[in-house]
Design a protein around this nucleic acid. Structure first.
Lengths: 218, 218
DNA sequence: AGTTGTGAATCTGTTCACAGCC
DNA sequence: GGCTGTGAACAGATTCACAACT
């Protein structure tokens, strides 16, 4: 039951997030138990992979029976750090920022955008979707006051690096950036890039080289 | 110089996309040659990784000198399938869809959105950002007529699977979905998921378990 | 009988280290 | 001398296969 001493691959973490969604859907359909076989089948993974992923964090199943869905959801939420809600800053209120500010998925998951930062003087001091908008100069101050721990950076590519560095300076340790930013972070910080262009170009690559395409699930 | 017979990992493809951007920036600053050492340093990879990634596709460098930037850009664009522009359908014109429709990155790269599909009868028949909006029922017809090969699916999570299956039925082989969709695709099709929730939860995980965080670059 | 949990085996991707070339 | 290109060594992730348990 104790957490494994081994290291957890980041791919395991991302799969846990996918499993969690899968299992929540299974719960909605009234199921009480689910097997690694079923979880795997829904997502195109192998049952061994699912069990191995879980085993990094303990043993949650009953041999011969499977996993109690309620317990498993609770365990996965705890592992992923979703027992409490997170307070999030949105940096950049352009078109993408506005879409994110109103994105229901944040709220349905455990993330609340509690402050928006934008350089536009017209926006500063007003609200969007009932969330106050501040100057990026106030990042550190507001982050501290509102206990913000995660920033979503949705600014144009040419200012993304500066924006991320500001966020780091403000002491916000978790960062998601929508423009590829690669910087050397202080310890205890994590930066994830959502790189649409890289995804588009990956698709372009495989359409151009169909012979190299993996078969089956994605 | 011939393409390697070995298989290219998808992570190599994604890094090539990052290298390409790096190298284009280097070109802007007037450089003519660049070494694997430099490309690696900018992105936090190892020089060996950069050379190995290139070597999947041939040898583009000059020993003792590095890579000619112009030639390398051309080679990478060809590898990634970016020699010609791609014709893209946008499926779903909600807030995210609108942000994508106006996203300059598509145009700056080699992707042109030439058709939008949305179920809203008010929108069908009109244009957005000068791009015509059609009913999803016309996907196959328009895809064929406009020679669309890539679809960007930006619909609510609960209709994402249906939307992706429609796109597949329409014969569009490259798909990017903004809600996690995991289906068994026919051969020759590729689906990439941009899963914001998984990224948020990955950040949540590492903030909750700072001891498991990798050090250094992301 | 059925399913978990996990060490061992396998497979995949990364890094090393150096021969080869400019 | 310096940097590429690459086989060999290594590290990391996945799958296998089976003992343990209900």
């Amino acid at each position: 039951m104790a957490e494994s001493s081994g290291v957890t691959p980041i791919s395991t973490v991302q799969r846990l997030s996918v499993y969690l969604r899968t299992i929540k859907r299974a719960k909605e359909s009234g199921k009480k138990f689910i097997s690694s076989e079923e979880i795997a089948a829904i997502n195109g993974y192998t049952p061994a992979q699912v069990r191995k992923d879980f085993s990094c964090f303990g043993s949650f199943g009953i041999k011969g029976k499977g996993y109690n869905i309620d317990k498993l959801i609770k365990a996965l939420e705890e592992i992923l750090g979703l027992s409490e809600r997170w307070r999030v800053a949105l940096v950049g209120l352009g078109r993408l920022g506005k879409a994110l500010a109103k994105y229901k998925g944040f709220h349905l998951s455990k993330f609340d955008i509690v402050a928006i930062f934008d350089i536009d003087p017209e926006k500063i001091g007003t609200k969007y979707n009932n969330i106050p908008i501040y100057s990026p100069k106030k990042l550190a101050q507001i982050a501290k006051r509102k206990k913000i721990e995660i920033a979503v950076v949705a600014v144009p590519a040419n200012s993304a690096e500066e924006a991320v560095m500001n966020v780091v300076k403000a002491g916000i340790r978790g960062i998601i950036s929508f423009s590829e930013v690669r910087i050397n972070l202080p310890e205890g910080f994590i930066l994830r890039n959502v790189n649409l262009t890289a995804e588009m170009e990956t698709v372009s690559f495989y359409l151009t080289h169909p012979d190299w395409m993996c078969r089956g699930w994605f």
